[in-house]
Design a protein around this nucleic acid. Structure first.
Lengths: 345, 345
DNA sequence: CTGAAAGCGCTTACAG
DNA sequence: CTGAAAGCGCTTACAG
């Protein structure tokens, strides 16, 4: 391969100065450069396949056309990669590339990540969390703007995009109520994550509005085994059995379905189950396919990146802040049915 | 925040020229700069928290301390994110950052990705595939060196790191044979992926070496539903039942376990099951926890990055090429037991 | 309408 | 032992 063409090369070929090629190629030719020379420059650039050197551009303009992404182990998180995907596509559409650093939840790495990225002259920061949490950004006001995805500033000085978990929990419960269920138990996630409480709140609101008694929730957890254990507990303990389970996430739901099978119960015949996340590795291909609430990972990535891009043109001092709630739509599949008529009623 | 210190700033503070600070800070002070000035420069740099501007450095040296990673939808792939993680850590340890572009398996995007990354002056390329496949790299010999992870050049002109799938398939079968199984059926993956055939080959070799008859394999697939369907097929069709199933991956294995439960069979009491991948979202928390073959995702990322880094110092013309096979270790958990004594024997 | 100059922040020959 | 100069590739005032 031969050396890449520089603006000097196209200037030489067009018989003009570098200034002229710069002006023309940046759309400022009109009124400055003669039509003949404009044409010559354009032709030369095309023939030489000239593209400005981004590094030189960076040095000159103090901008890099790259966004620094610091994450919370998101790269390891599986379906959460869709967040990065959404952010990446939106950035690419505007000519930006992503420099991503995964901090593995280590706060000291996090600080260094911001420094490293700032050194690299990134034009903006996106901080993305693996699972919904609060995040106190250190580098506020320290240069490039920052936007949060799947996390939020407790003081709302920074803009964050998060799932509307209360509505998500409510959607799950409402679907079951509408299908005729009256005895719905919640297999909650662990109390250390905020989503657990938000989803429970949504569930509780719907139960109250429907005038339904709330059976004791069970704290399960986020994986197959914990869903299995929690479901086994309620299915061997409750009499009569509840007709529906709302699970902490899709993996827990898979565990619950397996627990039901182990007890000779069929889903959704004997028991309806709804999951959470719409985990592509689980929900659509479970047997039965899981009715679930979708977490808007891709949307969070897209929206946060778009907000960041907007903010970068307006200047870092634009007054946007706070948190915006993204919809968690119900995805109806095959794990919910109307409850079987109960003998005792 | 105030402007970042430049080498001029430290030169001023130390009372020397920029050349001197450059020399000293790059370890070439000895014999060139007086001891007193060296000390002054070091002190000034520390006081000013001076770090050389990477962008200026890039322009000057024509290197960027960044590696371009182009992937095959790996960011969306879940556990495959560990590959990126391994690569990223190894790169960071050497002062390199990753610019990653996900091509979504679109060949035209792929070509553009390499161009974009080359423009950005990346010092090397890593191409990583979501699932094992062959890959014909276009940009060979076009500047920066390239190494492959989880894929291989059919002509072996480029170095690639891949899992030893034959050995992996063999390990699964051998484990079962050693536990006393003689009737082991393979629930294969789909024939479009090379790993399917490699794993089957390993399985076949072990069966032959043990002098065991090979029951017909079933082509299942890579997800829960397909594992469920394939397992249901063999468990309702075969008589006597096989005592063990080797599944295409952990999700298929989860489907198989669920199918067994639906049929009133227990794992591993009535049936042993082994998975593949060691998918962290499935294998360790299945009920029972899955005995499986681990895919060396992290190791592929690390090894490929290390090879790339080595290659970058030796020059892009170092003669390494071919493919190196990484170990797929068996992870023993709870889904395999000795076969129950069979009535008819 | 156009070119020569300065400058972004660095390093590396080159003179002294 | 040390500083002034050139140059990486670009853009933006500034003279003409």
């Amino acid at each position: 391969m031969t050396r890449r063409a520089t603006s000097q090369d196209v200037a030489d070929r067009a018989g003009v100065s570098r200034s002229a090629v710069s002006l023309v190629l940046n759309g400022r030719g009109a009124g400055n450069i003669s039509a003949a020379n404009q044409a010559a420059i354009l032709a030369a650039a095309r023939e030489l396949d000239y593209r400005p050197n981004p590094v030189a551009l960076s040095l000159r303009t103090q901008r890099s056309a790259t966004i620094g992404v610091v994450t919370d182990a998101i790269a390891t998180a599986g379906y959460a990669g869709r967040l990065l995907q959404g952010a990446s596509e939106r950035a690419a559409a505007h000519g930006y590339l992503l420099l991503v650093i995964d901090t593995q939840r280590d706060p000291s790495q996090e600080a260094r990540a911001f420094d490293t990225l700032r050194d690299r002259q990134v034009d903006g920061f996106l901080f993305a969390a693996m699972s919904l949490r609060s995040y106190e950004p250190s580098p506020v006001g320290s240069g490039a703007p920052i936007v949060l995805a799947n996390c939020f500033d407790p003081d709302d000085r920074v803009l964050g995009f998060v799932p509307d978990e209360i509505a998500g929990g409510a959607a799950a419960a409402r679907h079951l109520v509408e299908r005729g269920h009256r005895d719905i138990v919640l297999l909650a996630g662990t109390p250390d994550v905020v989503a657990t409480h938000l989803r429970e709140q949504g569930y509780l609101e719907v139960m109250a509005a429907a005038g339904l008694a709330v059976p004791p929730s069970v704290v399960g957890g986020w994986d197959i085994e914990q869903g299995h254990a929690a479901a086994t507990h309620v299915l061997t303990t409750r009499d009569p059995l509840p007709t529906a389970l709302i699970c902490a996430n899709d993996r827990a739901a898979a565990g619950a379905v397996l627990a039901a099978a182990n007890l000779g119960l069929s889903v959704p015949g004997d028991l309806s189950v709804v999951g959470y996340d719409d985990d592509q590795n689980v929900a659509p291909t479970m047997v039965p396919a899981l009715t679930t609430v979708r977490l808007p990972h891709r949307e969070m990535g897209e929206a946060a990146m778009q907000a960041l891009l907007d903010r970068m043109v307006e200047g870092a001092d634009s007054p946007i802040a706070g948190r915006v709630l993204l919809d968690c739509p119900l995805v109806v599949r095959d794990s919910v049915a109307a409850p079987a008529p109960r003998p005792g009623r």
